[in-house]
Design a protein around this nucleic acid. Sequence first.
DNA 1: GTGAAAGCGCTAACAC
DNA 2: GTGTTAGCGCTTTCAC
Lengths: 342, 342
Amino acid sequence: MASRVTIVDLANQLGVSRQTISNVLNAPHRVKEETRIRVARAIEESGYRPNAAARQLRNHVSKNVGMRLQPAGNGISGTVLTGFLYGLTEAAHSHGYRVTLYCADSDEEEISRYEELVTEADLDGFILTATHHGDQRAAWLAQRGIPFVAFGRPWDSGRDVSDAGHSWVDVDGRSGTREATEHLIAAGHRRIGYIGWPNGSGVGGDRRSGWLEAMTEHFGTEDPAPLIYAGEDTAASGSSGAATLLARGATAFVCASDSLALGASAYLRQSDQPALASAVVGFDNTPVAAAVGLSSVSQPVESAAAEVMRLLLGHLNSPTAEPQHVLLRPRLELRDLQPFNH
Amino acid sequence: MASRVTIVDLANQLGVSRQTISNVLNAPHRVKEETRIRVARAIEESGYRPNAAARQLRNHVSKNVGMRLQPAGNGISGTVLTGFLYGLTEAAHSHGYRVTLYCADSDEEEISRYEELVTEADLDGFILTATHHGDQRAAWLAQRGIPFVAFGRPWDSGRDVSDAGHSWVDVDGRSGTREATEHLIAAGHRRIGYIGWPNGSGVGGDRRSGWLEAMTEHFGTEDPAPLIYAGEDTAASGSSGAATLLARGATAFVCASDSLALGASAYLRQSDQPALASAVVGFDNTPVAAAVGLSSVSQPVESAAAEVMRLLLGHLNSPTAEPQHVLLRPRLELRDLQPFNH
DNA sequence: GTGAAAGCGCTAACAC
DNA sequence: GTGTTAGCGCTTTCAC
């Protein structure tokens, strides 16, 4: 038991009222400079820390924000989530906030968790992932004036609904695949294939559109359809994609994920044009990409987290703040392909 | 603002004292059955939730446990961490606890974070990862009687120091590679190679020993050294390992990681014995393994988290509880190798 | 600019 | 068994 020093101890010790200590901390301008310095120094030396519970009881503010953790497989998980969470925790800390985690199996359950966390633990705000148009959670929170920011644009059956009435931060997948495509164009490629997922996923469509944009811009009139392959998110599907598109004359490949890219590059390495294996770009810059030396579009997850926190603070500090949207540019991580199958 | 109903509202409404309400919640045996039921029902109907801050202020107990998030690359991260965190959050919730995250760049910084989180936010306990012998953090916490449990045995320059004076939960890597090896033996293999990391890492040594044990047990007298390959944790290194060991007559491969296994299987597929590619087993069952259809040893991270929480609760409820150690068996996830490079 | 009073919502201790 | 008293540590009035 560290003997906790309270505001009263400090006040007695300094011969001032506890209110003065409180003011030094919360409203420094109301205190005479001289007193302020004397008190501040004493706080420093004594190791006094204002008790969060007492503050929370008084203010109904916990300096805590909540984020739901999805079971593996749903929404973001793995490396991207880890990086985001790390960034979020750091950003929160640097603003005097903490991050509380919670789980839920459905949106309904998440809402009852909100109810619990807000009334019981006074959580100040939330970070949402995987929002969609007409999201019950967003509506529930908005209706009660509980601040929140989404990581990820709200998608609705493949369409981006950026005009949603709430703040969000996202990574611009389109810009990422566009940059990847342009990199390949600059390297002399002209027939660049796109290996992705079937229509319907917002993220998938977004990533595809960057490739499409670059291709259209540079090689305007050609029909892009023959250079597109869509399948499930596995390496096997990536291989099939590479095989299919190679047969159609593709010499380079932009992929919607590292799994697809892994399969594509593996296929190419053992094809009759193994050099093309290094003309494959993946997405998300997962550890696989690093392990095999695959170029990949890297999401700036920590910056995204910092932005999320920044917007959330805006809402926390002024409840009437307008929703804001931030779209971050990913970075193309270029690597030399490791000759890992020979 | 949801109109919060407090213990006083409820007491007035029911015509009992607030203490009775409190008793129904915290010491039901002291309340007459009839009253208890009446109060319990009213609690249910009114949606009353005891305020955490008030409770915390009174009890110096926050019903919150803390866990440090490591920046990507250090210690566990990615899928394993995500799964563990999810399991931890669920387990905590089911016992009425919440999980608070924090960051630190070093052990020293983590300790100052403890100080802050304990005195300021009344965190009740902590989960440690990557503990080692003579860990400052463990000593600091133990000295102050702050409950904690480690995920991972304390390793000291490659040696397991299971006798550490604190509770831990870990996954038995040895048992995992042993099972993988025995699976391959049962499939008719005899010369089974091990592709791992250089000596020095506790986890690496642990995983290697399972293979060694199984080999020694089944093929006693043979010198295992020629069947071992050690390199960095990349697919390229896995390929080199497979090439080297294949030349020495290996027909199957147990790997310390999925990255290594990925490289090994890719190498084998394009070797003159492509069928051997399916005689490769990885470790950690990451998304790569799933994507390429690689068999892999899977850590029961959610059970590990549940166990961590169970031990932590033990310490939370009785501060004098003896340290306990739990070693969990991983599971061999068998997959049919996808022909992803053709 | 500083101090005094009051109360946030809860529970341990005690009295009834 | 149930009610009363007191106080956890803090901050927002309001006097001074």
